[in-house]
Nucleic acid binder design. Structure first.
Length: 735
DNA sequence: GACCTGCTGCGGATTG
């Protein structure tokens, strides 16, 4: 340790703590972070997987600086997307901060008011907060903030990747910017993030206006070895009415392979999570052994989730969590023996995150993928015949091994969050000039894509809706409706949440179900891994009462589509073309893959991307969902009956001539903008405050986040020019 | 044919 350059620069008290932890050395990211954080003249992104010591990499030097500087007021502001993570970090920071005599204060909706009042009276040390609670502080206690944060040394943002490209992430950017504006000083930002494809994009998201340089610290430690298996399953046609109920064979294998140790099973949807957990519990019961399989997802009550997290942490009993994304983020559950992935993961980056949970103390990480494909019948769709799921998994594994990850989502416009931030700033200062507001939020802030003219139009629409009004001297103040909106506690979140029913058993809430997928009396359901009957639906109190029962299927949950990246589809095309056959497939997966290859080559898909079958035309751009969705809507606008799924575009009642003539028509006129394309979508109310915006403004935001117009035109141009005989048939005079 | 997150201020009753 004494040879470590970083260690020697740390404060004596911090060194003492490190000795007490019996660490023999600092990890690479910790070593590398010491100097730039101590110098505090730049922002820093620390990127590594879960449990790589990112928290210490940030806090050891940051606390060292606090010990030397002794700021008057709060020294470090730590911002986390999860309350559970704040509680974890609060526990983890205890011993270090006790030695240093720095106070740590958790600050979120579940924290006792007395704790907050204590910090309000004597602001100091480290505050661990959510974006929503920070929003409330700026809005309601602006002048307290300017004093309390006056000598703030660092802002540390945990799980930063979870914020990027989202409304909540835009809110976070705005909050950090407003805080700096308030204290008239730039504060170094430290982001702790998973590894994404382009880390410079992560730096841009951390400080969009680039007023400080950003240093990127990427973990160079290669991951421990990976043991990998892809297991194929055939779902028989007659069972196929509900995919989730045909999961029996997979559940049997999961039981045989996983029982007796601790694992995570990622099942991609809450319904499938419940189905698998219930089947696994049933098998334990049948074998008269204690149950060790439990579901974990966002609709389960906090108590049920926490008791499972604690059981995993304690490592006393073998425990397998069947889970959704909830166990992908950094909540402390220790590490598990292996990861099972049922159905294809949504992204390479998320597969990487999930893998980070496996591999105990230098043991290889173990990943098993359980991939169902549908039995082929006369009615089967091309995608089933191509065995698209198996190939998508192989593509994602190829990319994972190449260390390619999806880049962060870039999203230029967040009008819904601009509504929130506009109202919040006006509420904070009481009254603001429109020009000041534009400079703060747009010119120097995170809404930099919005020019003065667009901002003026935006403000006029807020005034029309009664959210704001203008005084004689030009000052903007909150209108009646604006006061109401800002005054309600639901104002602090940038994202919207649909109404839900609470599910209750014996007077205890066990979770929630969405209100738009109602349950009915006497219906049998699976929830929290157990089987129930609905005995009462109370619409007035949004409460559903349950009793124990047998049988049943999971309730329906709502959700949006998924977004596969261009590079994943291109990798898939290459796998088909080259007939790549990896070694980690079991016999069934191997058979499925061979069937897929045979069909791909029977259709000559290695040399063409457009085919006609019956009265349908199928297009295979081998590009991501943003591009295929854009092409699909373009074709629809020009009158074709187009639909897309899984990267393939189906056009009904269409011939190759119809298709190519339409594409020619599209290309004959100047390129449409994403906003124009969105104007054809009837309902563009998606985000929380969209109802306050006119459709013209909503379409700008909707178009830019949904469509990739350049990508679509690039493909359309290429498909026309590479199909010579079709070019001959085209007659522009007909357009 | 997808997932996830979050929340104030104040009045009134109760307790030490």
């Amino acid at each position: 340790m004494s040879e470590s350059k970083g260690f020697n620069k740390l404060h004596k008290g911090v060194q003492k703590w490190i000795w007490s932890q019996k660490w023999t050395s600092l990890r690479d990211i910790q070593e590398e972070a010491v100097c730039p954080i101590l110098d505090s003249d730049c922002d820093i992104v620390i990127s590594a997987s879960t449990a790589a010591g990112k928290t210490e990499a940030a806090f050891l030097p940051a606390c060292s600086r606090l010990m030397e500087q002794h700021p008057n007021g709060i020294g470090i502001l730590y911002i986390s997307p999860l309350k559970a993570l704040i509680n974890d970090q609060f526990r983890r920071l205890q011993s270090l901060c006790k030695i240093l005599d720095i106070s740590v204060t958790p600050w979120h909706g579940d924290v006792l008011r007395s704790t907050k009042i204590k910090q309000q009276k004597n602001p100091n040390g480290i505050v661990l907060i959510t974006p929503e609670s920070l929003e409330s502080l700026l809005l309601n206690r602006g002048s307290w903030c300017s004093k309390a944060f006056n000598e703030l040394c660092y802002i540390i943002v945990d799980e930063f990747h979870a914020f990027i490209g989202t409304e909540r992430g835009c809110q976070l950017q705005s909050l950090m910017h407003r805080l700096e504006f308030l204290i008239e000083r730039t504060i170094p930002r430290v982001a702790l993030s998973a590894t994404l494809g382009d880390m410079n994009q992560v730096a841009d998201a951390l400080r969009p206006n680039k007023k400080l340089p950003c240093k990127i610290i990427n973990s160079t430690v290669s991951h421990s070895d990976l043991k990998l298996q892809l297991r194929g399953y055939l779902i028989h046609a007659q069972q196929n009415e509900r995919t989730v109920s045909s999961i029996g064979e997979i559940a049997c294998d999961l039981y045989k392979i996983l029982r007796g140790k601790s694992h995570l099973i990622f099942a991609n949807s809450r319904a499938r999570t419940e189905e698998i957990a219930a089947r696994l519990s049933d098998m334990c019961k049948q074998d008269l052994v204690p149950n060790e399989f439990f579901p974990h997802h966002g609709s389960l009550s906090k108590e049920i989730r926490e008791s499972l997290e604690t059981r995993l942490q304690k490592e006393k009993f073998p425990t397998t969590a069947v889970c959704t994304m909830t166990l992908e983020l950094g909540i402390d559950i220790g590490s598990v023996d292996s990861i099972a992935q049922v159905t294809s993961p949504h992204s390479v980056a998320s597969l990487r995150q999930r893998l980070g949970r496996s591999g105990r103390r230098g043991e290889p990480a173990i990943l098993r993928l359980f991939i169902p494909e549908n039995e082929i019948t006369v009615k089967s769709h091309l995608l089933d015949r191509l065995r698209i799921h198996t190939v998508q998994c192989i593509a994602m594994i190829n990319l994972l091994l190449k260390k390619w990850y999806e880049p962060a989502i870039s999203n230029k416009y967040h009008f819904s969050t601009l509504v929130q931030q506009t109202l919040s700033v006006i509420g904070q200062y009481g009254g603001v000039q429109a020009s000041q507001l534009w400079v703060l939020l747009c010119e120097s802030g995170p809404f930099s894509s919005i020019d003065q003219a667009l901002f003026a139009m935006f403000l006029r629409s807020l005034a029309e809706k009664g959210l704001i009004s203008q005084l004689g001297d030009g000052q903007l103040v909150l209108g009646y409706k604006g006061e109401n909106l800002v005054g309600h506690y639901s104002f602090y979140t940038a994202f919207s949440t649909p109404d839900e029913y609470r599910l209750e058993f014996n007077g205890k809430v066990i979770g929630t179900v969405p209100i738009d997928k109602p349950l009915t009396q006497e219906q049998h359901i699976i929830f929290a891994g157990k089987r129930w009957e609905v005995i009462l639906v109370d619409d007035k109190h949004k409460l559903i009462t349950l009793k124990k029962a047998k049988g049943g299927t999971p309730p329906q949950f709502s959700g949006d589509g998924l977004n596969v990246h261009d590079i994943v589809r291109q990798e898939m095309q290459q796998i088909y073309s080259e007939k790549q056959t990896p070694v980690y497939l079991n016999e069934a997966a191997l058979l499925a893959l061979k069937e897929g290859f045979d069909y791909f080559h029977a259709l000559n898909l290695d040399s063409r991307q457009i085919i006609q079958m019956g009265n349908m035309v199928h297009a295979f751009p081998w590009l991501g969902d943003r591009v295929t969705n854009t092409i699909t809507v373009l074709l629809q606008v020009y009158g074709l009956k187009a639909d897309s799924f899984g990267g393939v575009i189906d056009i009904r009642n269409c011939t190759l001539d119809d298709f190519f003539n339409t594409v020619k028509k599209i290309l004959y006129v100047p390129q449409i903008t994403s906003t124009e394309l969105a104007s054809n979508i009837p309902d563009t109310v998606i985000e929380k405050h969209d109802p306050f915006l006119p459709k013209t403004i909503r379409d700008i935001g909707y178009g830019s986040r949904t469509f990739d117009v350049d990508g679509a035109y690039k493909w359309l141009t290429q498909i026309v020019s590479s199909t010579h005989d079709q070019v001959e048939k085209f007659q522009p005079s007909k357009c």
